[in-house]
Amino acid sequence: MNILLVYAHPEPKSLNGALKDFAVQRLKDAGHTVQVSDLYAMNWKAALDPSDSTDRHADARFNPSLESKHAFERGTQSPDIAREQDKLRWADAVILQFPLWWFSMPAILKGWVERVYAYGFAYGVGEHSDRHWGDRYGEGSMAGKRAMLVVTTGGWESHYSPRGINGPINDILFPIQHGMLYYPGFEVLPPFVVHRTGRMDEARFSSTCEALGQRLDDLWNTAPIPFRRQNTGDYTIPELTLRDEIAPGRYGYAAHVE
């Protein structure tokens, strides 16, 4: 299988760097073909701006969505964007690996999503009508592909528990897993989360690699998170809210999982 690992950490000698190297070797040893987008090493430009389109008029008003759409359709996207889109087309599975910084992904990875997910490529596709509100949330250009997060945190696992001070990890990762991965159609696997990274000794690193290796071995056997599909009746259209009889009394992350 073809696997794209999008990696966001500025220090190659970090724990993240070691886990990335382990993951790549484990996947290759299993016979997979792996590409790595090491965003810091690539000097990836995080900001979505007018330079992302190569044929625009300098004095034109900048409309991010429409210019993304036109550049994608006309083949006038910045070359770095087009290369990453080609990697996504090629991949059977995508792994996003990053440290949890201020309750989200590093800005450079958010910028990768904003620039690579062009209008017409990852969103704005499919029929929009009173019965089908675009190909998204379980449908779309990434349908049939799998995705997984590999995330490190400095906090304890209990800090991210259902009653932990930081909030449940599934709620924190919801905008990424549901919004950035499930939205364009990926089957999203449960995340691999490493807590308390400042307390990583050799023995714990070994056990962490063993656990990560098992998750990578099971990449095509693990059941995805059962997010509800948008266009199969659970949501009213065009309001896109859950029907009253679906998950009554449940809200947030829990309401959108079957």
Rank of each mutant, 00 (worst) to 15 (best):
Q214N: 14
P238N: 06
L173M: 06
I237T: 14
N221A: 11
S51M: 12
E127D: 12
E210F: 00
K145R: 15
I165T: 08
K13T: 15
F192W: 11
L109N: 01
D201G: 15
R136G: 08
L219A: 05
V151C: 02
N231E: 09
P10W: 13
A255C: 04
G167I: 02
F174C: 05
R83H: 08
A107M: 03
L240D: 12
A143S: 14
Q77F: 00
F121S: 05
A147I: 02
R136H: 08
L189W: 00
E258L: 09
A147W: 03
K20T: 04
E67Q: 13
A30I: 03
G138K: 05
V94M: 01
P99E: 05
A223Y: 00
T152R: 04
A122H: 05
Y123V: 08
G252I: 03
R250M: 11
A71C: 01
G198P: 11
P64M: 03
R115S: 00
R83W: 02
T54W: 01
N231I: 09
E202D: 15
F192R: 08
A46K: 06
H9T: 06
Q97K: 00
N63S: 15
R199F: 13
P224N: 10
R74Y: 03
N2H: 12
P226K: 02
Q77R: 07
V34M: 05
R146W: 00
Q177I: 05
Q177E: 15
K145C: 03
S78N: 13
S141I: 03
L173A: 04
T153H: 00
L100N: 13
V194A: 12
G249C: 09
V194T: 15
Y7S: 10
A247H: 15
F227R: 02
S37L: 05
G179E: 12
Y40I: 11
T152I: 06
A23C: 12
L5F: 13
G213P: 09
T236L: 11
A203I: 09
L173W: 04
N170S: 13
R56P: 06
G17Y: 03
M105D: 02
P191I: 08
P162D: 03
G154P: 02
V151H: 05
A223D: 15
K28Q: 15
F62S: 10
A18K: 15
Q177S: 14
H9P: 06
D86L: 10
E157T: 13
P79Q: 04
T54S: 02
Q177L: 10
F121K: 06
F192Y: 14
P248E: 10
S68F: 01
F227H: 04
G111H: 03
H128M: 14
A143R: 14
R199P: 07
D171H: 13
H256L: 14
R163W: 10
L96S: 03
R89Y: 09
T197D: 06
L189E: 01
R131N: 12
M1G: 10
K69V: 00
